[in-house]
């Protein structure tokens, strides 16, 4: 176990935090674990792949387009599907988002085969050496973007008008409605924002790690574990938990071998659920 492995593990944790932020947001506001969140992440990576094949756009040139597409998709998803399901109760939300995940996996497998692929970028192979520690540039970028997104989200939630409307809608939808907040619109924009964050995470994940149609389940579980550890709706907690998760995974890979990478995360998830169901950092802003 050397310093390079550990540092890159923490940096990769930034990626997990990025994926978890969107999940945390939806969970905090809609009280729903979006089981299709992993599919949104992988879908963004596939969208970037398609844009490369069609227009030879690199992953980072494609990113803005992918973000917009994901946000529109998220908005429509909430408007046409999730609102209706949530009114029927939590069971419908679980079945519906699970169905969406199954459908998404099948669609990706049909359109892109079930083989693993990755997004090509010069960033993927470049690295920088600082004092004996080799940093993978793509992970540095992912971590920096994750910190920027978390900071922006935290600021937006706390200090902007839209942020207070969102927090109000999350706390008590019916009272917020009485105060003149268009709760349905706020909910739809929340899912759109979560999908946009998922898209950023997905493209970076595609560049750094590569993906296959079934990658969504392990991503979803890692994200849920991060959200649970960090506290639902707690942006800073999610960021810290994501980085910690990356570190733990790096340690477990170097101790037990690569096969147990995901196993550690799932076990950790159970340990946290047993020990602190409310998360290590408590409930957040939402």
């Amino acid at each position: 176990m050397n310093a390079t492995t550990l540092v890159n593990g923490v940096l990769e944790g930034g990626l997990y935090a990025l994926v978890a932020l969107g999940l945390s947001l939806v969970f905090g506001v809609l009280r729903l674990i979006n089981l299709a969140h992993g599919v949104l992440v992988i879908g963004a990576a596939y969208a970037a792949l398609e844009l490369f094949e069609l227009f030879h756009l690199g992953p980072f040139a494609a990113l803005p387009i992918v973000i917009v597409v994901a946000a529109v998709f998220g908005y429509l998803l909430q408007r046409l599907m999730l609102t209706n399901l949530l009114l029927k109760g939590p069971e419908a939300g679980i079945v519906g988002t699970f169905g969406l995940a199954v459908l998404g996996e099948a669609a990706f497998a049909a359109a892109f085969t079930s083989n693993g692929v990755s997004l090509q970028s010069s960033l993927a192979t470049s690295s920088v050496k600082i004092g004996g520690v080799t940093l993978e540039m793509v992970l540095v970028a992912a971590c920096a973007i994750a910190i920027a997104c978390a900071g922006g989200l935290q600021f937006g939630l706390k200090y902007t008008r839209a942020g207070s409307m969102l927090r109000a809608a999350a706390k008590d939808p019916s009272t917020a409605e009485l105060m003149g907040i268009n709760v349905r619109l706020v909910f739809a924009l929340t899912v759109a924002l979560a999908a946009a964050l998922a898209a950023v995470g997905g493209v970076l994940y595609g560049v750094s790690t590569g993906f296959a149609p079934t990658s969504d389940t392990s991503l979803l579980l890692i994200a849920v574990a991060v959200v649970v550890v960090g506290g639902v709706g707690n942006v800073t907690g999610t960021l810290v938990a994501g980085l910690a998760m990356g570190l733990v995974q790096a340690i477990s890979v170097s101790v037990f071998g690569g096969g147990y990478a995901d196993f550690t995360v799932y076990v950790l998830f159970f340990v946290v659920l047993i020990a602190r169901p409310k998360g290590l950092f408590g409930q957040g802003a939402l």
Binding site: G93, I94, T217, L221, A225, G257, G259, F263, Y266
Partner: peptide, 23 residues
């Protein structure tokens, strides 16, 4: 735990067992 966590927890248990038996 409440409903959603139960769903994800059972999912995690399955994935964990799969990963364990695979290795």
């Amino acid at each position: 735990l409440k409903g959603d966590y139960f769903a994800v927890g059972t999912l995690a248990a399955t994935m964990a067992l799969d990963a364990w038996f695979d290795n």
